[in-house]
Amino acid sequence: MKHRGLLLLAALASSGCLSAPEIVMVDRATALEEQASGSFKDVELRLARAGMRPTPVPFTPNQLEEMGSPPTPLVENLGKTQADRVDELLRRHCVGEGRDGLLVDTRRSCQAGRLTADDVALVARVNRSRLQLWQWMRTVRPSVSEEALRRSWQQVHAEGVVCGGWVESADGTWGEKKC
């Protein structure tokens, strides 16, 4: 009986009735499967670009103030003069009125904020203007010594220094101007 089954199988195989089924191997998903699963290539590309683009870190006003940044005024003071800016620096103790009549950089004593490059340039301009004023005063009154002119100018100027401004006393110590 076993031989008969084998003979039948051999006869069928030689006659061509028996053939292997056609198998198609697909290594990619079909278009329908790709649509169903979704393509994230565009999203991944946008995410990669966003990761490479630097953006500012959001800080609250309190966090900025804790880091030493002065609080932003509610209204912009566009009409501030150089004298107003110097008075503000004197009040914050970032700059002091030296006993020689010149402004002195005292940023180590600065209470709020910091001294910017614009502030340093302003102090240099004010000091240069004062030196030029003293030279002119010397030409007007040549009989008076430069030291005496500076001292008399500094005494008069000290009266106009803003209250609470940082000033150097005769003994070289720094303190706030009392009003």
Score class of each variant (00 low, 15 high):
147 E>S: 10
1 M>K: 07
167 V>Y: 01
91 R>F: 08
101 G>E: 00
51 G>I: 06
45 L>A: 15
179 C>Q: 02
24 V>Q: 12
13 A>E: 11
47 L>K: 14
104 V>F: 00
48 A>K: 13
127 N>Y: 08
64 L>W: 10
42 D>I: 09
62 N>C: 12
113 G>W: 00
52 M>L: 14
113 G>K: 00
140 V>Q: 04
11 A>Q: 13
19 S>A: 07
80 K>T: 06
74 L>R: 05
153 W>L: 11
119 D>C: 01
15 S>M: 15
142 P>F: 01
137 M>W: 04
170 A>Q: 08
25 M>R: 10
48 A>V: 11
72 T>Y: 05
70 P>Q: 02
73 P>I: 00
12 L>V: 15
11 A>M: 15
117 A>W: 06
5 G>E: 06
29 A>Q: 14
8 L>I: 13
166 W>T: 00
155 Q>R: 14
125 R>E: 14
144 V>Y: 02
179 C>I: 04
19 S>D: 03
159 E>S: 10
69 S>P: 00
36 A>L: 15
144 V>T: 11
22 E>S: 07
87 D>H: 04
29 A>N: 14
118 D>N: 14
73 P>A: 00
89 L>G: 03
148 A>E: 13
92 R>D: 05
67 M>C: 03
136 W>K: 12
60 T>S: 12
122 L>K: 02
96 G>F: 01
124 A>V: 15
143 S>W: 09
95 V>E: 01
6 L>A: 05
11 A>V: 15
171 D>C: 07
170 A>H: 06
44 E>K: 11
63 Q>W: 04
13 A>C: 12
81 T>C: 06
123 V>T: 05
6 L>C: 04
142 P>M: 02
92 R>E: 05
80 K>S: 11
24 V>S: 11
71 P>W: 01
26 V>E: 06
74 L>Q: 06
27 D>K: 10
97 E>K: 06
119 D>A: 01
9 L>Q: 05
130 R>I: 12
80 K>H: 07
103 L>V: 04
15 S>E: 11
34 E>Y: 11
175 G>C: 03
121 A>L: 08
5 G>Q: 05
23 I>H: 03
149 L>S: 04
137 M>I: 06
159 E>M: 12
64 L>D: 03
20 A>G: 04
115 L>M: 07
155 Q>K: 13
131 L>W: 04
51 G>L: 08
132 Q>T: 08
118 D>G: 15
138 R>F: 06
59 F>W: 09
85 R>P: 05
166 W>Y: 10
51 G>R: 08
107 R>C: 02
44 E>G: 14
116 T>L: 12
52 M>G: 08
50 A>W: 11
164 G>R: 01
64 L>S: 06
9 L>A: 08
8 L>C: 11
70 P>M: 02
29 A>M: 15
24 V>M: 11
157 H>N: 05
66 E>Y: 09
53 R>Q: 12
91 R>V: 15
158 A>M: 10
103 L>E: 00
93 H>C: 08
119 D>I: 01
101 G>V: 00
90 L>F: 09
9 L>T: 08
125 R>G: 10
130 R>F: 14
116 T>H: 08
10 A>T: 12
148 A>P: 05
72 T>R: 07
97 E>L: 09
59 F>A: 04
24 V>Y: 13
165 G>F: 00
